[in-house]
C-alpha cells in the first residue's frame, strides 16, 4: 500500500504531520489458491496432526502417546538387554504381531476422532461445499491415518535397531543387523496400511464415537482371538503317540494341513504373519503361525483384495447424499 505512512521515515512524520485513516474494511483475496491437490494435502496434514492429538486438547493426546510409549518400551528394554547380556529381547519381525493389541487400542481411540467426528458434528457438508471431490476426503483421511500408524510402528522398530547396533561391533555385524531390520520396517508399513484402511472403513459407518470404537476393537480383537485359537487348534494339535510299552510322547504333525492356513485368514494380523513366514521362509517351530508355504501367496492376495475392497467401500460411502 503506497498510502501507508508507516513506511515513511521517523523524521518525516514530525516535519509533515499528516493523518491517514486506513481501510480495515473487507478485503477481497486475489492471491494464490492452492487448488484441489493442495487442499487434499492440507487435509492430510491436519488429520495427521489430529491423529496424534496435536492441535487438540490435552486429553486427546493421552491414548496416542500412551500407545507410543508402550510400543517403545520393548525397544528400550532391548537396548539395555543387548548392551548388558547381548541377548535380543524381541525380533524385528515379531514386534508388530506381539504388540498388535496396542495398535488396536490406538486405532480404536483415534479412528473415530478422525472419521466419526466429522459425521457426528456434521462438518462434512462444509468440506463438500468446497473444491474437494467426494473421494478426496476419505483418501486424505486414510493416508493420514496410515502415516500416523507408521509413527506408532516404525519408531519402535527404529529404536530397536538403534538400540541394537549400539552394542554391535564391526561392519559385518551392523550389516547383518541392518538386513534384519528392513523386513521389520516393511512389516511395520504393511501393518500400518492394512490396519488403518480397515479401521477407517469400520468407523465411517457411524457418527457415534462409542460405536466406532467398539466396532474397531471388536473386529481386530475378536477376529484375532478366534483366528489364533483356530490356528492353534488345527495346526498345533500334537499327536499323542502311544508307545508299545504303555508310555507315550507327543509328536507335532509335520504338515498341519490346510486348517491353520485358512484360520490365519480370519484376522488381518495373522494373515500378515502368514504372508511374512512365506516371504521370509522361517522355520515353523519357532513361530506362532505354522509355515504356510505357498499358501502365503493366498495370504498376500487376500490381504491386498481385502484392503482394495475396503477402500472401494470407503469411497462409495462418501458418495452418499445422506452425509449432507
Amino acid at each position: 500500500m503506497t498510502t501507508d505512512t508507516a513506511t515513511a521515515g521517523p523524521g518525516s512524520g514530525a516535519a509533515n504531520p499528516s493523518g491517514v485513516i486506513h481501510d480495515i474494511g473487507y478485503r477481497t483475496y486475489d492471491g494464490e489458491r492452492i487448488g484441489r491437490l493442495g487442499i487434499v494435502r492440507a487435509l492430510y496434514w491436519h488429520s495427521l496432526r489430529s491423529a496424534w492429538g496435536l492441535g487438540r486438547g490435552s486429553k486427546a493426546k493421552i491414548v496416542p502417546f500412551l500407545a507410543l510409549v508402550i510400543m517403545c518400551l520393548p525397544a528400550v528394554a532391548n537396548a539395555f538387554s543387548v548392551s548388558r547380556t547381548g541377548i535380543r529381547a524381541i525380533a524385528y519381525d515379531e514386534y508388530m504381531f506381539s504388540f498388535q493389541l496396542v495398535l488396536v487400542l490406538y486405532l480404536a481411540a483415534v479412528t473415530p476422532e478422525l472419521i466419526s467426528r466429522d459425521l457426528r458434528n456434521r462438518t462434512l457438508p462444509l468440506y463438500f461445499s468446497r473444491q474437494l471431490r467426494r473421494t478426496d476426503y476419505p483418501l486424505a483421511k486414510v493416508s493420514a491415518l496410515i502415516t500416523a500408524m507408521l509413527g506408532l510402528t516404525a519408531i519402535p522398530e527404529l529404536l530397536l535397531y538403534i538400540g541394537t547396533i549400539g552394542s554391535r561391533h564391526g561392519a559385518s555385524e551392523v550389516w547383518h543387523e541392518t538386513r534384519a531390520f528392513f523386513p521389520g520396517l516393511l512389516l511395520a508399513v504393511v501393518y500400518s496400511v492394512s490396519f488403518a484402511i480397515l479401521a477407517t472403513l469400520l468407523a465411517c459407518y457411524t457418527g457415534r464415537r462409542a460405536f466406532a470404537t467398539g466396532a474397531v476393537a471388536v473386529f481386530f480383537f475378536g477376529t484375532w482371538v478366534v483366528s489364533s485359537a483356530l490356528v492353534h487348534l488345527t495346526g498345533f494339535r500334537p499327536h499323542y503317540h502311544h508307545g508299545p510299552d504303555g508310555t507315550g510322547y507327543f509328536v507335532k504333525p509335520g504338515d498341519p494341513g490346510i486348517g491353520p492356513k485358512i484360520s490365519g485368514l480370519l484376522n488381518p494380523a495373522n494373515m500378515i504373519e502368514g504372508m511374512k513366514e512365506w516371504i521370509v521362509g522361517r522355520a515353523p517351530e519357532n513361530s506362532e503361525i505354522p509355515y504356510p508355504g505357498g499358501f502365503g501367496a493366498v495370504n498376500l492376495a487376500v490381504l491386498v483384495g481385502l484392503c482394495a475392497l475396503a477402500l472401494f467401500l470407503l469411497m462409495r460411502r462418501y458418495q452418499k447424499a445422506s452425509l449432507l
Binding site: 483475496y29 489458491r33 492452492i34 493442495g38 487442499i39 486438547g57 462438518t123 462444509l126 468446497r130
Partner: peptide, 25 residues
C-alpha cells in the same frame, strides 16, 4: 444445522476451513 466441532477454537476451525477452500497457510 450445527456443523461445528466443539473441541477446537474458532480460529483453528475457520483457518482450517480456509485451507479447505484453497487458501495457502
Amino acid at each position: 444445522h450445527d456443523c461445528l466441532p466443539p473441541d477446537v477454537t474458532a480460529t483453528e476451525f475457520v483457518t482450517h476451513m480456509g485451507r479447505m477452500g484453497g487458501l495457502p497457510p
